[in-house]
Design a protein around this nucleic acid. Structure first.
Length: 471
RNA sequence: GGCCCUGUCGUCUAGUCUGGCCUAGGACACAGGCUUUUCAAGCCUGGUACACGGGUUCGAAUCCCGUCGGGGCUACCA
């Protein structure tokens, strides 16, 4: 491996795995693969109250479903406390950080006061220059948190998607970097981890853009290298708001349950904020890897469009073979449908053009297994009289009963059936036949159904229809 | 409020860096048509966009300035 590209996907397991997060994971993975680098998974679970194992599992399952494999072991911030503690102590000793004893309620009053004066709310710095002895004394009986002594300067960095970005850190104030020596907070933990994991490129959502200068400042006082940053545009809901866990969005798992194919999801995700050079919508994973480039990442947010996902899924569904589709479909079907694999595959092949999601299949294909109840009016084509309709079905019945069982295939059926349809009217013959076989107002064509049902079942369904019309 | 990011069809986007080939291209969705016994699928056709206002220039979606709009952040969350 000649390159040293190392990226990470660093979600916090505090809510369902969202589409936006999945897209971030994909772009990191794609970048790593394209650059022949490595892709790591880091669980950011410093917030002990909100982090849940079940969400961590959801992330792992989601990445696995999408096929975004990570290199090495999963790292968890909750397992790295001693490392953070070391750096925290160093920061404290070097006077780049200090203990703060201000209570939450004091801070809140201060904040409101600043806000009402139209000032940016930031910490007053009351504990910034406490004498060392006082700090030591108060630490014994008071609770305290650790603040970073934010240097006042212009922090500038070059973002791979946004270009030059700069911020005046004087507006930032002294941020809290840990609740205690063993409870680091996000902005601090990220800096340490990215360094320890030798991360070369940090690719994350635009919501982290304001955090970047804070992190750079911490890197600087610790003399750590600054990784290359790339901030991805956000994926927005139909309300134009960030599609985040706070807004209870549909999670990746839900899409999997609905029956979207991983390939389609990947294809959809990659098009949210990125576009290949040559105009195309349908891309295989290896094409994505070959062509991916951060230079072509969009700057503005993208509204999530479920219709395009559906279309992509339909396209992906039609691109795979019947056999593959049967396998993918299995979790979505009743057990007894799986008894005759050969029949199921035929059903799948006839139905696949009509399916948008795997979950749709059951409803669409039910009539193959059991004739649904349907009103006799459904059998009537336009203004045809019921007697004529019944008569037509009897003609059809005679034709299929005269066909030999082993010649019950499309071309032979058509050879005898089509002349009848021509003389007695295509709609008048074919429509009632199709309804008799499917019991539905929409279905695949009658000849296809005849072939798949075979002589016996076809005849039985047609007889039922005739009875309905005469009864 | 402040700071930061951003602005091409309803939506995803190509084109913007390096001004003319853009009377702005593709895709989804939508409408119509072909095919057809139905529903799909497929094929064909159509409408709709450079946020606005000023500049610069022979020429601007592309460069400059301003205005307006959208979003993010502003936690002892990430």
């Amino acid at each position: 491996m000649s390159t040293n590209v190392r990226v990470r996907f660093a979600p916090s397991p505090t809510g369902p795995f969202s589409i936006g997060n999945a897209r971030t994971a994909l772009f990191n993975w794609l970048f790593a693969k394209h650059e022949k680098g490595e892709f790591f998974l880091r669980i950011e679970d410093t917030d002990k109250e909100r982090s849940k194992k079940k969400y961590e599992k959801e992330i792992i399952d989601g990445l696995t479903w999408l096929g975004l494999a990570w290199d090495g072991e999963i790292s968890r911030q909750s397992e790295r406390e001693p490392i953070y503690k070391n750096y925290l102590e160093k920061l404290l000793n070097d006077r780049h950080a200090y203990w703060c004893f201000c209570s939450a309620s004091e801070l809140e009053i201060e904040r409101q006061a600043q806000l009402s004066q139209g000032l940016p709310p930031r910490y007053s710095g009351r504990c910034r220059n406490l004498p060392h002895e006082e700090t030591v004394k108060r630490l014994k009986k008071e609770s305290a948190i650790i603040r970073f002594k934010t240097p006042e300067k212009i922090v500038a960095f070059n973002d791979l998607v946004r270009g030059h970005v700069e911020v005046n850190s004087a507006l930032l104030g002294d941020m809290v970097i840990a609740k205690s020596l063993t409870e680091p907070l996000y902005n601090f933990a990220v800096v340490i981890d990215d360094y320890e994991m030798k991360i070369s490129h940090v690719i994350r959502g635009e919501d982290h853009l304001p955090n970047t200068p804070k992190q750079i400042l911490i890197q600087e006082v610790l003399s750590l290298p600054t990784p290359i940053y790339a901030h991805l545009p956000l994926i927005l809901g139909p309300d134009r708001k960030k599609l985040s866990k706070r807004y209870l969005d549909y999670s990746l798992t839900d899409y999997e349950k609905d029956g979207y194919l991983a390939q389609a999801m990947l294809n959809f995700l990659v098009l949210m904020g990125w576009h290949p050079e040559k105009d195309r919508e349908i891309l295989t994973v290896s094409e994505m890897i070959n062509e991916f480039s951060l230079k072509r990442v969009q700057k503005s947010g993208a509204i999530f469009n479920p219709q395009k996902l559906d279309w992509l899924n339909g396209t992906a569904l039609r691109a795979i073979t019947g056999g593959e589709l049967v396998t993918a479909l299995k979790p979505f079907l009743p057990k007894d449908w799986l008894k005759d694999n050969n029949f199921l595959e035929k059903v799948v092949n006839l139905t696949k053009d009509r399916v948008k999601k795997l979950g749709d299949f059951k409803t669409l294909a039910e009539f193959f297994f059991e004739l649904p109840k349907y009103p006799k009016e459904l059998l009537i084509w336009k203004e045809t009289a019921p007697e004529i309709t019944a008569e037509n079905l009897k003609f059809v019945l005679r034709i299929i009963e005269n066909l030999s069982t082993d010649k019950f295939i499309k071309i032979d059926i058509e050879k005898d059936l089509l002349p009848l349809a021509e003389t007695r009217g295509r709609g008048e013959v074919l429509w009632p036949l199709r309804v008799a076989l499917s019991g539905k107002d929409a279905s695949p064509g009658p000849v296809e159904l005849l072939e798949i049902f075979g002589q016996k079942e076809s005849a039985s369904r047609i007889k039922k229809a005739i009875k309905k019309l005469e009864g």
